[in-house]
Write a protein that binds this DNA or RNA. Structure first.
Lengths: 128, 128
DNA sequence: TATAATAATAGTAATCATTATTATTTTGGT
DNA sequence: ACCAAAATAATAATGATTACTATTATTATA
């Protein structure tokens, strides 16, 4: 990709993602933006999410099913509730020094990591 | 699934997986076993890997592309080389007490986690 | 501001990994 | 040997994502 050109679609995508904390999937973003941009194509959403993630402007999170996206690019970790599917940021620093630790112990060069906890969230613990 | 019945295919799958350390994909196992079981079906491989993983007999690892499988079920972490694609066990204990830590800090109930480091492996560091 | 080069789009088709369907075969208890 | 339950092979279907292509939008420049 030589150089980026502005596009309303990409701009709307960036703004929408920055305005939410629920780690939406491509489909969720598509459905939402379709409201104000009826001609928006799902392929456009995927293409922009992919390039933005490659450029480090957003975060792409692999979950085993559908990928989720996050406007917060500072490395942090996530929690996925196996009951309700909620996908939460772990605000407290948990995985902070893991990269250095893995490098020291195992002799590999670590660029980044992906850490997802699975279990039961607060709401689902009380609702039972 | 009421109760399991023996099958040659499942047995071969378990033995093959137990005998290797490269975290094969379903396709890799299929190709290998096809040599001695020409009628083996890819669906059979997937179905057995899925039930074995559900029963906790093997580990299923999501990587963003193709899932990988591991006969070692003790919770441990992995490293994926972005140069050569090697998928390695991290033998040293890195993620050991993360679950408890996440529970204490964030008030969620953690059942398990998935931790994958990405970067450059030893071989790829020297070969450049 | 008209032009031209190029990037981005919409719409659709294709791909890839995985799961579901179904008719047939295996297994294991009686 | 007989029967019910489970497993299989072969294939179709699904779901997420990427690729293709003709058209449209953006931007630098004459």
């Amino acid at each position: 990709m030589a150089q980026l050109k502005f596009s309303r679609q990409r701009q709307a995508l960036i703004e929408e993602l920055a305005g939410r904390r629920d780690h939406p999937t491509a489909e969720m973003l598509y459905t939402k933006l379709k409201g104000t941009m009826p001609h928006l194509s799902l392929g456009t959403v995927y293409r922009n999410l992919s390039t933005l993630a490659q450029d480090g402007e957003i975060l792409r999170i692999h979950t085993g099913t559908t990928d989720r996206f996050d406007a917060v690019t500072r490395e942090h970790d996530h929690f996925c509730c196996e009951q309700c599917g909620r996908f939460l940021d772990l605000e407290k620093d948990i995985g902070g020094h893991l990269n250095a630790q893995a490098e020291a112990l195992c002799g590999v060069r670590v660029a980044h990591h992906s850490l997802v906890f699975y279990g039961t969230c607060c709401q689902c613990q009380t609702n039972r």
